[in-house]
């Protein structure tokens, strides 16, 4: 009983926190549903939410197996980006040679619209998993590497001077000062990269594929099966959301001090 009421209070608190956004979503769906019926909008133009849901439920197995394919591409490409970009950022931040040789290249490549490279990947790597993985990698890679470099270079001059007066070795300084100081920047990059990963996977599937949510989306689109187009978009958004949120959870665990610091700053400005 006590537990139930505590949960109840927690739920009310959560509602108070998220209630605004939730209300707007509900209102939006209600208005959408109502508008479609009242104005008699054709289903292939704008299906009502109820229809999207019922169609999705009827064919959810196809959509979910497509979702699984896309999720794998996202996770593999993103993981590769993380594993490559953070060590590279370290090298660029700490080696003068790497900074002179590699950093300008990174900055230049960052400007190239990566999505335009997708067709090339198809030519080089065929229709399978590889070109999708590579496009996800490519899109996630740059924000992570750029903000990690900024993070590793962000050490304040006075902090480093203080550290030098302790006689600490460079490894000690790295683990006690530079790495923790870099983490907030690195996580910013990781979150931007995570948000781009889903986009990259779908675009790669658009270009050439026989499975995945991007493939399904084109199929449904061609058949003017608009309810399923909507359903697929929703599932895709949910995948993106989960990946992004997972990174945020890791961030909360890894750098709780930064998260609460931001919360304090926000409170102070309210």
């Amino acid at each position: 009983m006590a537990l139930a009421s505590r949960r109840g209070r927690a739920f009310v608190a959560w509602l108070g926190h998220r209630g605004g956004a939730l209300t707007i979503f509900v209102l939006l769906f209600v208005a959408w549903e109502a508008a479609v019926h009242v104005f008699g909008i054709k289903e292939y133009l704008l299906p009502p939410p109820s229809k999207v849901w019922s169609e999705f439920w009827r064919r959810h197995e196809i959509v979910m197996s497509g979702a699984w394919v896309t999720t794998q591409e996202i996770l593999a490409g993103y993981a590769l980006a993380v594993v490559v970009s953070i060590p590279l950022a370290l090298a660029v931040a700490y080696s003068r040679f790497m900074e002179n040789a590699v950093y300008p290249v990174i900055v230049f490549l960052q400007i190239v619209p990566k999505i335009a490279i997708a067709p090339l990947f198809i030519i080089w790597f065929g229709f399978g998993f590889t070109p999708k993985l590579l496009l996800v990698f490519l899109l996630s890679f740059f924000p992570i590497v750029v903000s990690s470099i900024a993070g590793f270079k962000s050490a304040d001059r006075d902090v480093m001077d203080f550290a030098r007066t302790t006689g600490a070795g460079s490894l000690t300084m790295f683990f006690k000062i530079r790495l923790p100081q870099a983490l907030p920047h690195i996580f910013t990059g990781l979150k931007v990269g995570a948000a781009l990963a889903a986009t990259a996977a779908v675009v790669a599937e658009f270009v050439a594929s026989d499975r995945g949510l991007g493939y399904l989306l084109l199929q449904y689109n061609g058949q003017l099966d608009t309810p399923m187009v909507f359903a697929t978009i929703v599932v895709l958004s949910l995948i993106g959301l989960v990946v992004y949120y997972a990174v945020e959870v890791v961030e909360r665990i890894a750098i709780p001090w930064h998260v609460s610091q931001q919360a304090t700053a926000k409170d102070a400005t309210l």
């Binding site: 006075d158 203080f162 007066t165 302790t166 006689g167 006690k176 100081q181």
Partner: peptide
């Protein structure tokens, strides 16, 4: 020596106590 700058240059991820102790940690 001990050094103090105009800005406190504390480490954000450490409590006040841990910020004081970083001096000896960095010295091994």
């Amino acid at each position: 020596l001990g050094i103090v700058f105009q800005s406190p240059v504390l480490l954000d991820w450490r409590t006040a106590l841990a910020n004081v102790l970083v001096q000896v940690e960095l010295r091994g």
